[in-house]
Every structure is written in C-alpha cells, then in structure tokens.
C-alpha cells in the first residue's frame, strides 16, 4: 500500500533521514520504534508531505507522492495525528472534529463518522462544546485521533500517541487503535517510543537508528530479539 524507497530528508543542512526504505501492506499495523532523534517523526512528516524528502520516492497505492502537497496527500487517504497532539485549542471539540473533515463534502457521511468517533470515545461526546485546550492530555490525544479519523483515511499515521499520558490511558488508547484497525480495516503506521506496547499491538515493526532502518521483522519476533530487548525494552 505504502512504500518508501531510499528516502533522504533534510531540515536545512541537517540530514535527518539517510536512506529509509520500508513497506506497509494494506490492513496492517506497522510500528516504527527508535530512540529520540532517530528520525521517526521525520519519516512520518516525509510521508505526509509536510517535510518533503529531498531524494528517494514515496509510493502510495502505486502513485508517487513525494512531490505532492500535504493537502493532496490527505485527500488521497493519508491522515496524520501529529506529535504532541496539536489540537486547535480555541476551537470546540466538535469544531476540531469538523476541521478533520475539512476536505469532505458528504454531510451524511461526516455525521455518521462523527457518531462513530463518539462511540469510540464517549468522553468526547460529553465534551463536544468544550474548547479543545481545556481537555486533559488523554482526552486531547483521543480528540487528535478522532480528528484524523474524520477524514476517513485509508492509512492513519500516528505519532507517539502515548506521549505524556498515564499508563492506564495509554493502554486504553492502544486498544482503540487495534479496534480501529480491525473494524474499518484502516492501515495504521504507528511511531512510538514505548516499544513494548507498540510491538504488542503491531503486526510488524521497524527499528530506526540515526536516520536509518536497522532492523525489520514481525512484531512478536522483535519483542524477543536480544538487541531490541537490550536497547528499547530495558530488559
């Protein structure tokens, strides 16, 4: 469904990605784990076109999207939940969700999707008229995920959904991620620091170091891999 072929991405003169290649199959949950500064977020930004790669190619459904504007990429079916949630603090929950459906014109479809995300996260339905900035961290993460779902994506890019959240909430969110994957057959690309949890949810995983992919395997095999255990699982 999505394939990255030898992506090089720069921030000005600083090279963040040094030839990243990976594959995502339809219906999968893929996770990308790695230390701080490994280039995980940059990989997502390169896919969504916000920081386009300088060389290499990104293929989505057989089409090259490495030179396509971010808004076109969203309309092709890739939605991103940016790192640190980045909800609109002064818009209400409902308006935040409405922004997620910005490119859509089918009112009925949007309304039924609204009901769907309210079903996933009932707390959001309760707070629908509250400003986004007044929500707790966990609720904001739920809102960010729901907002991305409102675009009805085929591929959902999740950037560190566990960031700064209590373990219990993290667990809840990961369950919902799995649920979204099963119920809608939404392909999910999950970037995480919490390697243990991420590998438990995902089907396959990639390990990233210094802008390169160093390992890739089935998630359960990575969980038992000695190097991964030592470096990322703290066992």
């Amino acid at each position: 469904m999505l394939s990255l072929a030898d992506i090089h991405t720069y921030y000005g003169n600083i090279q963040a990605l040094k030839g990243v290649s990976l594959e995502v199959e339809e219906g999968e949950i893929i996770t990308l784990i790695g230390a701080n500064g490994a280039g995980k977020t940059t990989t997502l930004m390169s896919i969504s076109g916000i920081v386009p790669p300088r060389s290499g190619d990104v293929l989505f459904m057989g089409e090259s999207i490495s030179r396509v504007n971010p808004d076109k990429i969203v309309s092709m079916g890739i939605s991103q939940v940016p790192e640190g949630r980045r909800i609109f603090p002064y818009l209400t929950v409902l308006e935040n969700l409405d922004m997620g459906a910005f490119l859509r014109n089918d009112k009925d479809g949007v309304n039924s999707d609204l009901d769907y995300v309210f079903g996933l996260f009932p707390i959001l339905a309760e707070r629908r008229n509250q400003a986004g900035g007044t929500l707790s961290g966990g609720e904001q993460q739920m809102l960010a995920i729901s907002r991305a779902l409102m675009a009805r994506p085929r591929l959902l890019l999740l950037d560190e959904p566990s960031l700064g959240l209590a373990p219990l909430i993290v667990k809840q969110i990961f369950e919902i991620i799995r649920k979204i994957n099963i119920e809608n057959n939404t392909t999910i690309f999950l970037v995480e620091q919490n390697a243990n949890l991420a590998l438990k949810v995902a089907h396959r995983g990639y390990v990233m170091e210094n802008g390169r992919i160093t390992l890739s395997d089935a998630a359960d095999r990575l969980l038992t891999n000695e190097d991964v255990k030592k470096a990322y699982l703290g066992i």
């Binding site: 916000i50 808004d71 969203v74 991103q80 980045r86 609109f88 922004m99 997620g100 910005f102 490119l103």
Partner: peptide
Amino acid sequence: ALREDEVACQAMGID
C-alpha cells in the same frame, strides 16, 4: 485553524 496551529492545519488537508 491556521491561526491556531499550522502543522495541524496541514495534517487536516488544508492548503
């Protein structure tokens, strides 16, 4: 939305 967060804006598909 642009006033509030540019990156989120782009992630929503706003040009």
